[in-house]
Design a protein around this nucleic acid. Sequence first.
DNA 1: CAAGATTGAGTAGTCAATCTTC
DNA 2: GAAGATTGACTACTCAATCTTG
Lengths: 157, 157
Amino acid sequence: MAAPRWLSDSEHAAWRGFLQTHAVLTALLNRELTTESGLSLQDYGVLVGLTEHGRMRPVDLGRALGWEKSRLSHHLSRMIARGLVAKEECPSDRRGQFLVVTAEGRRAIEAAAPAHVEAVRRLFIDRLTDDQLDVLATISRRVVSGLQAECDGDGCG
Amino acid sequence: MAAPRWLSDSEHAAWRGFLQTHAVLTALLNRELTTESGLSLQDYGVLVGLTEHGRMRPVDLGRALGWEKSRLSHHLSRMIARGLVAKEECPSDRRGQFLVVTAEGRRAIEAAAPAHVEAVRRLFIDRLTDDQLDVLATISRRVVSGLQAECDGDGCG
DNA sequence: CAAGATTGAGTAGTCAATCTTC
DNA sequence: GAAGATTGACTACTCAATCTTG
């Protein structure tokens, strides 16, 4: 390995800031959401994904969330046990299934959403400018696409 | 609760993108780091914090990382058991201690750093412009300061 | 053999209760 | 009583192994 290109102060600030922001933000949002609705931030993410797409295969939901397949599988089995989501057969490819939100899951996310969206606004969205939000979305697409390219070469998951 | 101000498409993209990016990026970085050096991303963060500050109290390290106090406490006891960090008495306030990196901890992070920094560059830093990195650092400061203001009102920790 | 998904064992994180010192 | 820190029980995540279908 040649002499490492260490991070500059501003690069270091960006990277550590990203990690710190995520830690602190998700901890508080998760606490609020759980206390008020009984859903975790993870539950909420699953329900948002399925609600947006109507029905979805685990592999696609996992990609949208950025989760490992076994994490998703464990989490889904807990949510299925609680009656929030359900599985349907996938006729075209019997290795996979479709996931759907149950009526109870729909009630749960509809009850949780107003307060949670307010919290996300208060702590995150409303503290940033439109330009900053656009940069963030651009960064996400850029980094995630790079990660996926990386994972085409070997087995990432 | 009045009619909720739902997130616009671009706000939703920014927020979900942030969560997805963090999930996907930390999973891959953690796997690489653990495989090549035996340190987790969390271990690395602790060692970076302590190395930068020389000696540090748990409460300050927890703030820098954005971690809950019990998470830090559990993690430190594991790192102490592995000989990576150690505690010293804090003469001015005997409720607290100082944390220091051991010689072994220093060896571990120095061995891990070159490859890890390369990975952070390859997957994150080098894919973004300087302007984007600056925006990210600004966002972090802004959001984290808001969170701390929020936590002055009640007990967040 | 590759891809979608599950399982079990081990590790890590959260919450509430507790202890000590200020 | 509040702040710094720890502990134990519970929940969640990771990794590797496995199973089934393409």
